[in-house]
Computed example of a mutant assay.
Amino acid sequence: MTLAIATLPLLERRTLAESAYAHLRDLLASGRVAPGEKLSLRDLSEALGVSVMPVREAVSRLIADGALEVAPNRAVRVPVMDGRQFRELADVRAGIEGWAASLAATARSEAQLDGIARAEAAIRGAERSADLGHAVQLNRDFHFAIYGAAGLPTLVDVIGGLWLKAGPVINLDLRHSRDRLTAGHALRCHAAALAAIRARDAEAARAAIAEDITRAADFIIDKGGLPSG
């Protein structure tokens, strides 16, 4: 059993399939499993403290979501993307998540603005932290604080699905290296997004989040960590 799987929390006995689905979504979106990594139903069920049945149901849903796939040997694994596929996903994310940020700029409440500001300050404070896994969580908190302020739960669900596919690449990269943080692009884009949302400038908020996503994709592709398309 891999360390990432072994650290999954035990589930309560109610709504087991839903709970398993939620925890496995988080496992993928947070980059705790790598592209190409195989997932054992038995290991997952043991880690979550449930039978294989709810885990199988959750995995089937994730396969339908495109977040997992069945390899030719019938093993379940995290999909591997090449550079072209990752660029396409980043372009889609930039469009949709940028739109969500533009909506948040005009729809946000003062309480939501305070939450976005706290999340931005937290990720800034993690720049020199030794805990890169915590930096990943803070980055997600910042983005989804913005998307939640857009006021469209369906849009947040769509974005969550995109992060399921992108997470094993973008967050695995961040978990293993602070280069993206120290390069300054992410922190600058985050600060610009916060300033735009504070000023209720929808276009500037859209541009800041779109640039954040595009810059991260450029950084990962330029590092050569993805197969060529």
Rank of each mutant, 00 (worst) to 15 (best):
A121I: 04
A216K: 08
D26W: 13
Q112C: 01
D218S: 09
L113C: 00
G184L: 08
A186K: 11
R14A: 12
A145P: 01
I116E: 05
M53S: 14
H190M: 11
R188F: 08
E211Y: 00
V76I: 15
F142I: 01
A58K: 06
P227T: 10
D141Y: 00
L155T: 00
P72G: 11
L155P: 00
L68C: 02
L48W: 05
D173Q: 14
D82Q: 08
A122S: 11
A22C: 02
G31W: 11
Y147T: 02
G95N: 12
N139E: 13
I197K: 01
D201G: 00
L174P: 08
D179M: 09
M1L: 10
T154N: 08
E37S: 06
P72E: 14
A195Q: 13
D91R: 13
G229D: 15
R140S: 10
P153M: 06
S102G: 14
D114R: 13
R180Y: 15
I220D: 08
R180G: 05
R56T: 10
P9C: 09
L132K: 14
L28T: 01
Q85K: 12
L27K: 03
A101S: 05
L162K: 11
K223G: 15
I213Y: 05
A210T: 06
V70N: 02
I63A: 04
I5N: 08
L44T: 02
I220C: 05
R84G: 13
E18D: 13
R87E: 15
L187F: 10
I170L: 13
E203I: 03
V80Y: 08
E203R: 12
V59Y: 03
A150E: 04
L28G: 01
S228E: 15
I197S: 00
A17F: 02
D179N: 12
G49C: 07
A22N: 09
F219E: 12
K165A: 10
V158P: 04
V78G: 01
T15R: 14
G184P: 12
S129Q: 08
V78C: 03
A135F: 10
A71Q: 14
P227N: 11
Y147E: 03
L11I: 09
F86N: 01
A6F: 08
P72S: 10
D201N: 12
V78T: 03
S129V: 06
A67W: 04
V80R: 12
R108W: 00
R206A: 06
R14M: 07
E46I: 06
L226Y: 02
T214V: 01
D141R: 11
A130Y: 13
H143W: 01
R56A: 15
L155Q: 01
P79E: 06
L44R: 03
S45R: 07
L27Q: 02
R84C: 03
G148T: 07
T154K: 07
